[in-house]
């Protein structure tokens, strides 16, 4: 069984994001970039399935600039077998990505696609669902547990009321939640080996899909800075302040 894991290069979670002065977007100059943490969980899950003998090949794919090769190498160092980069300078949005991924799925013929449930930059939480829709495949989103047996995937999802368990026939699309696993730390020999693993670079034009942006960004704004908190000396004072100043009770 082949698993396809799409990964996204995002601003690292430890970076304090700065908005460009002209409001056209986030300043990416000299900013540390790394793999979207949810996608890392996807890569880890795919590798674990391979280690358990369930999967035979793990292919990671990223879409974007040439710099995404570095992100792909990270996934290869974790243990993925092969990488594909779809190179483009276009601004990619969930629907466009889902279309490109669909084209790739048809080309690679995986039985399972594992994506992060969302990317920590735009937090869209759409690509997985759209891909499943375009492919007309079943989907198990926000998976916190995944089991594969007899051509079926059993997905446990964390929902508001508790846990929900779904059973999907393969092929299927899975998106990962935080608790699915803890990604491994890569070993040095694997980092070295990753440099020798195959990484194909395609152009968007090579794929029979359209990825023109359908959403226009008007303005990007930083959130209002939070007002510092105050210390109250008693419960009475707290209640009074909540009632009179914050007017919440």
């Amino acid at each position: 069984m082949k698993i396809l894991v799409p990964i996204k290069r995002v601003v690292d979670y430890t970076v304090k994001v700065r908005v460009k002065p002209d409001g056209s977007g986030v300043d990416l100059n000299n900013v540390k970039m790394s793999m979207n943490p949810f996608d890392e969980i996807g890569v880890e899950e795919a590798i674990r399935l391979k280690e358990r003998g369930i999967a035979s090949e793990v292919v990671v794919v990223s879409l974007g600039s040439g710099a995404c090769q570095e992100t792909i190498r990270t996934a290869l160092a974790m243990g993925a077998d092969r990488g594909v980069l779809v190179e483009t300078d276009l601004e990619l949005q969930p629907l466009g990505i889902a279309r490109l991924l669909k084209a790739l799925v048809l080309k690679e013929q995986p039985q399972l696609v594992i994506l992060g449930k969302q990317a920590i930059d735009d937090d869209s939480n759409q690509t997985g669902q759209m891909l499943a829709g375009l492919l007309n495949w079943p989907q198990g989103t926000f998976a916190s547990k995944l089991e594969i047996a007899d051509g079926r995937a059993t997905v446990t999802r964390e929902v508001d009321g508790g846990l929900e368990t779904l059973e999907l026939p393969l092929p299927a699309v899975i998106t990962t939640d935080l608790r699915l696993n803890e990604p491994r730390y890569t070993t040095l020999p694997n980092i070295m080996k990753a440099k020798r693993r195959p990484l194909d670079v395609l152009q968007v034009a090579d794929l029979p899909a359209e990825a023109v942006p359908s959403i226009k960004t008007l303005k990007v704004q930083p959130p209002q800075p939070r007002k510092p908190g105050i210390r109250v000396s008693s419960v009475e004072e707290l209640v009074r302040k909540l009632r009179e100043e914050a007017k919440v009770i």
Binding site: D12, Y13, T14, V15, K16, K32, S34
Partner: peptide
Amino acid sequence: RAGNPWGLA
């Protein structure tokens, strides 16, 4: 990533 063990910016 952050250059410090706390992972702060």
